[in-house]
Amino acid sequence: MPANAFNGFSDYGIGIGLRIPHYRHILEKKPVVDWFEIISENFMVDGGRPLEVLDRVLEQYRVVQHGVSMYFGSADPPDREHLKRLRTLVRRTKTPWLSDHLCWGSVDGRFTHDLLPMPYTFAAAKHTAEKIRQVRDFTETPVCVENVSSYAEFHASEMTEWEFLSEVVEAADCGILLDVNNIYVSSKNHNFDPYEYLNNIPAHRVGQIHIAGHSKFKKYILDTHDHPVLDPVWKLYAHATRLAGVTATLLEWDDRIPSFEEVHGEALKANRFIHALEAVATP
C-alpha cells in the first residue's frame, strides 16, 4: 500500500486542491507539496490562462484529475465530446488515475452542476458501473468513484449507501475515492453509523481518500469545504487508513480559502495518523 491497480500503482502521499487564490504563491514560491488535485472541468478548455498555469504547475508537481460532471449515475450515456476533452487533459497531466462522483446531475441535456444522490437500486448500480467502464476504457486510465454527501434519501432504494457503493465498484471493477467527510455528513443526515459504512466496503479498492470540513446547521449538516477538518472526521480517517492502508490523501478546501500555508498545514495533519499506523506496522 498505497499502490494498487485503482490508483495506477502510484505512491502519492498527502496533496491539496489546486485553487486560484494560491496560484501566485505556488508558481513563485514553489512550495514542497507531494501532489495537487485539479478539478478536470476547470482545465477542459481550449486555451488561455488556465492551461498556461496548469503547464507551469506540471513542470514542478504531480497532478491528479478529479471530475465533477461525468455524472456516472445519470441516465444519459457519456457525451463523446466530453470524453474527448477529458482524454486530452489526461494526456496533458499524465494523471495516474481519474476520479468522479457516484451521483447523477444531468437529465436530457440539462445540467444541474450539483452532485445529486441516487436511488440505491440494483438497476442503477448496473447502469452506473457500465458508464464507469466506458469512461475508463475511453481514457485508458483507472477510475475511482467518490461517495457523495447527501441530504435526501429515496423510498425507491433497495440497499444502503455502502452496499450500493460496493455493488457499483465490484461490477465496474474500479476503485473508490473514499471521502470520509462525506460519510460523516451523510451519517448525521441519515442516522447511520459511519463505522458500519467503512467496515462494509471493499477496502482493497480504495485508491484515494478525501478529507474536508463541513458546516453544522440546526437540522442537518452541509458539506461546505470551508473549514478545517473536524475531529470526528479525523477519527474516521484513522479508521479508514487502518482498513485500507496508507492511501493517497487529499484535503478539499473550496470556499473561504485561507492562505496556502494554512491549507497545506491542515492537510499535513493527516501525517499523525499515517505515522501512527506505520509505527504499529513496523516490527
Binding site: 450539483d114 445529486l116 441530504y151 435526501a152 434519501e153 429515496f154 423510498h155 443526515n189 441519515h190 442516522n191 437540522k219 442537518y220
Partner: peptide, 16 residues
C-alpha cells in the same frame, strides 16, 4: 423522498 426525524420530504428536497 424519505423524511427523517428532523426534516420532511419537502424540506429535504428543498435543500437541493
Amino acid at each position: 423522498i424519505k423524511p427523517n426525524d428532523r426534516l420532511t420530504s419537502f424540506e429535504r428536497l428543498e435543500i437541493y
